[in-house]
Design a protein around this nucleic acid. Structure first.
Lengths: 207, 207
DNA sequence: ATTTTCAGTGTACAACCGTTGACTTAAACA
DNA sequence: TGTTTAAGTCAACGGTTGTACACTGAAAAT
């Protein structure tokens, strides 16, 4: 009924999902045990080693999946070509939605960006950097930052990504319909607008 | 030779230092065990409970000490009243120095800002918020942001703090004299200048 | 049809964990 | 001087951990 490879991949996926689930439930990734993961994946503990050498190994695999989640977000954003006037507010709303839809991934990312092993941190950072470059390409394509010097445009996009990432841990602590979330969302919009405004006025300043 | 209270406080301090040391050595705070801390503090494990009910309790005590470290930074910054033209570059350099001088605290703060228990996270966030308000008061006193609307000034200061905090994890991964550190420092300066520039041009924009 | 491969099983062990309760002993107190 | 207080000790518990090793059984390869 199912090939061996299919079964293996399925178990692998179950292990990763189990880890993610435990992280989403509040545990720190470095505190999740192999046995706990195996139990949640309905597999005996030693089976873990058939798929990953290490928890770090599993973490890196999760980062890879994370990149898919980010790419998916990018695609959603591209489809919603809107009035440039509202692009910031819309993008923030889109992001917030995406975070709630893929909560566990963003919990994992936020945690490991600052707390994980050196390799995991590095891995996530380079993922964000890649994402920033994608954003830069998109904004250029939409003629939104063409008037800026190239290095300033890149810097701007990196800062946008970092600003969003920086607000994510707090975002993850708030309930979906809450007033606090509304406030945070507004704050993100203001921060982004400030950054854009700063970039726009960069050349005209005496730097 | 020494009062009972002195001895107690000393042991308490040893426990906190031991925890901090283990965190600095690469472990995540939530992964540090009471026994390990006790061993490093040259005390029997059960002695831990004479001082803290919990690891969370110890964590909150560390946040309190952290606030002292931040206040100390603020004081240093106030003494260095410099040419406003260079204030950003100087402040960044000052901050970087302070981070290297109090490495373990900033490792702890970075970790727990995103990864710790809900209470710890909240505690550190409010610490940063307090710090942002202090900064706002100082900048107003120096007539550096007096021309801005009050809410924008506050928003600016919060964003400055968040920008610095956001870059700290990466800062902690770099060696003191390295070229990568130099680059990061420059990036922080640019980011801060962008934010200031954005705030300065806020009113004149159509918001 | 027979052999090989290998994902998943089961057992086992030594190390570590948090926390308990009863104890010692020296400083603080009356 | 005698009594109280409480920081630090000690032994012990039940539970969890990572991982080694030998195994099974069905899919894949021959």
């Amino acid at each position: 009924m199912s090939t061996r490879l299919e079964k293996k991949l399925k178990t692998r996926h179950n292990l990763m999902s189990a880890a993610l689930k435990l992280v989403e439930e509040g545990q720190h990734f470095s505190n999740v045990s192999i046995r706990e993961i195996a139990k949640n994946a309905q597999v005996v503990p030693t089976s873990f080693y058939r798929h990953f050498t290490d928890m770090d190994d599993l973490g890196l695999a999760l980062v890879d999946e994370l990149s898919l989640v980010l790419r998916q977000l990018m695609r959603k954003a591209r489809q919603e070509v809107v009035n440039p006037k509202l692009i910031i507010a819309n993008s923030v709303a889109l992001y917030v939605d995406h975070v709630y839809e893929n909560r566990s991934f963003f919990v994992f990312m936020s945690q490991e960006l600052t707390g994980g092993s050196a390799r995991l941190r590095e891995s996530i950072r380079s993922e964000l950097l890649y994402f920033a470059n994608e954003l830069a390409a998109d904004l250029k394509r939409l003629n939104l930052i063409n008037h800026l010097p190239l290095d300033i445009a890149d810097q701007l996009c990196l800062q946008v990504i970092m600003t969003v990432a920086m607000n994510t841990p707090e975002l993850l602590d708030l309930d979906k319909g809450s007033q606090a979330l509304e406030k945070l969302q507004q704050r993100m919009e203001i921060q982004l607008r400030m950054v854009f405004l700063g970039a726009a006025n960069w050349s005209s300043s005496k730097n």
